[in-house]
């Protein structure tokens, strides 16, 4: 670094620091849309990424295939045991589905909170510095992807679309620590459903934090957590994970639970983006969106124990 404290260079350094602060300030706020230069760069890089990611996925799958072959015997044993249960469960599911359909017809509702369309996308990159947990997929607004849609794998929810460009989009994973990454979830405890919020990721214990659980709810280890469908763009009934431990929160009014995510975030190849057609929903249930807005405003100040009336069913 020759002549570092030369006047001209010092000025350039100062100007670039100021530019840095301005740019960071500009991009830190919640952005509704992505500015076009950013979109353009991301799309054109996305073309290259999508081309070179295919052979990489292919090679990775070959490695995995060999590993899988070695575990086949053990896996086969456990699968055989589960198969018997499967027959019973699938018969029950078919029954329930038919019953659901007839009930829906008689109730005259077409749209449900659990309705969605699913689009498959290939993971083309992942943020190599793990400060923010984001992945890129090769589908964009041209394919009908929009901001805030839910992204899932076969195992369960993995995140939401953070930014959508024309031909590629960025997905923010659940393991990203950001508190704004808030998902309304529900736990089936006994015969009642308990609503709460997934807020943030616990770095030390590697799990999602389920917050604002009513203090009289009977949450136990091993219970399934699914999306409740109350929070905007996410359909209901997508598995999130399993309750690992429960503890009272810092004020003692509500409970927090640590959730072990159902999906594996480390090795992703194909993901599905769920489109809920929220416009139609808004027309059908205008009160739903209003409720949501109110909830967002009140969220920080409201007494969470009293929330079951407003945010719940």
């Amino acid at each position: 670094m020759p002549h570092f404290f030369n006047n001209k260079r010092l000025i350039i350094l100062m100007v670039s620091i100021i530019l840095l602060v301005i740019l960071v300030g500009f991009s830190m706020r919640e952005r509704e849309s992505v500015p076009w230069p950013e979109e353009f760069v991301r799309d054109s890089v996305g073309v290259f990424q999508s081309t070179i990611s295919r052979p990489a996925h292919f090679a990775a799958n070959r490695f995995e295939a060999v590993e899988n072959l070695l575990d086949t015997y053990e896996e086969n044993k456990t699968l055989k045991q589960q198969l018997e249960k499967y027959a019973a469960t699938s018969a029950e599911l078919e029954n329930t589905r038919q019953e659901n359909e007839t009930l829906r017809e008689s109730a005259d509702t077409q749209e449900m909170l659990s309705d969605y369309e699913s689009r498959q996308a290939l993971v083309v990159y992942r943020n190599p510095d793990r400060w923010t947990q984001t992945i890129g997929i090769n589908q964009g607004t041209q394919n009908g992807i929009e901001q805030d849609m839910a992204v899932v794998t076969n195992e369960g929810l993995i995140g939401r679309v953070a930014e959508a460009s024309e031909f590629s989009s960025t997905v923010q994973l659940l393991s990203d620590g950001e508190r704004t990454n808030r998902i309304s979830a529900s736990v089936t405890a006994g015969d009642e459903t308990v609503n709460a919020f997934i807020e943030g990721w616990d770095e030390d214990r590697d799990g999602l934090m389920l917050r604002k659980i009513r203090s009289d709810a009977e949450i136990e280890e091993g219970q399934q957590v699914v999306t409740s469908g109350m929070g905007g763009a996410f359909p209901s009934g997508i598995p999130i994970g399993e309750v690992e431990s429960v503890e009272p929160d810092e004020y003692g009014l509500t409970y927090n639970a640590l959730i072990e995510p159902a999906a594996d975030f480390s090795d992703l190849t194909y993901v599905n983006v769920l489109d809920r057609n929220i416009e139609d929903l808004g027309e059908e249930f205008p009160s739903l969106e209003e409720d949501q807005e109110q909830e967002d405003e009140e969220e920080d100040t409201v007494d969470p124990v009293g929330e079951e009336g407003g945010g719940g069913s």
Partner: peptide, 11 residues
């Protein structure tokens, strides 16, 4: 532009 949603830091 591609990996982080915060501009300027890496530049």
């Amino acid at each position: 532009f591609t990996y982080t949603q915060i501009l300027g830091v890496y530049t």
